[in-house]
């Protein structure tokens, strides 16, 4: 059991590092879009600025959801079925909540 775990650890990169990379990418892209958008606003490009900022906010919003999906894939690859299932439950609850929220709002 322990040996098998170790072999999984060495064959693939640890889940923490994969997720850290994904979250860093998401926050860098979001921060860049926000910074460019705010600068555009300050120099008077009022047409495009709010759209750039909104794009940045949407990238940020998508990052945690993508993180759950990425974790699900990693658990499937590691044949960790319990945790793959837990991630699927989270994703399903999020999707239902979003659909209900949009309908209700």
């Amino acid at each position: 059991m322990v040996v098998r775990e170790d072999s999984v650890e060495t064959k693939h990169e640890a889940i923490e590092l994969v997720l850290a990379r994904l979250l860093r990418l998401g926050s860098l892209v979001a921060a860049a879009l926000l910074a460019v958008g705010l600068t555009a606003m300050v120099v008077g490009l009022t047409g495009i600025a709010p759209r750039l900022i909104t794009a940045g906010l949407l990238v940020l919003l998508g990052t945690p959801v993508l993180r759950v999906a990425a974790a699900a894939l990693i658990f499937v690859r590691e044949r960790d079925w319990y945790f793959a299932f837990f991630c699927a439950v989270v994703l399903a609850a999020l999707a239902t909540g979003i659909l209900l929220g949009r309908a209700g709002g």
Partner: peptide, 23 residues
């Protein structure tokens, strides 16, 4: 994230407020 989607859909997220604060 699940709450934020609803606020986005309702148009409550104002880019000029949320932008600088989020950065």
């Amino acid at each position: 994230a699940s709450g934020a989607v609803v606020y986005f859909a309702r148009g409550d997220v104002q880019p000029l407020v949320a932008g600088p604060i989020v950065l």
